[in-house]
Amino acid sequence: MTDAQHYNPDPHAHPGLHVIAIFEAAKGLLALLAASGLELLGPAPLLRWLHELIARFQLDPNEGALAWLNKVINPDGVHLAAAVVLAYGLLRMLEASGLWRAKAWASWLGCISAAIYLPLDLYAVYHHPGWTSWAVLAVNLIVVAVLARDLLKRRQ
Rank of each mutant, 00 (worst) to 15 (best):
G16K: 08
E39Y: 14
N140Q: 12
L109K: 01
Y123V: 01
P45C: 03
A87I: 14
W68N: 09
R155F: 06
Y7P: 00
G42W: 12
A106M: 07
S97D: 06
R92L: 08
L91S: 11
K153A: 13
V146R: 01
A106P: 05
L151D: 00
H18Q: 04
A102W: 15
G98H: 07
L29W: 06
F23S: 00
W131L: 11
L152K: 08
L147M: 09
M1A: 03
A25K: 02
W68M: 14
D150V: 07
E24R: 14
Y126L: 07
L50I: 09
D3T: 07
A114M: 08
Y117G: 00
V78A: 04
A145Q: 07
A138E: 07
D3H: 10
P75V: 09
K71M: 11
R101F: 14
A44G: 10
L137V: 04
A115G: 02
H51M: 03
M1H: 03
A145V: 10
D60G: 09
Q5K: 10
V19P: 00
K153N: 15
W131V: 12
K103N: 01
E52Q: 14
G110Q: 05
L32Q: 10
L69A: 15
M1F: 09
T132K: 10
G42E: 05
L99R: 06
C111W: 12
I54H: 01
S97W: 15
A135R: 12
L118F: 05
A25W: 08
P61M: 10
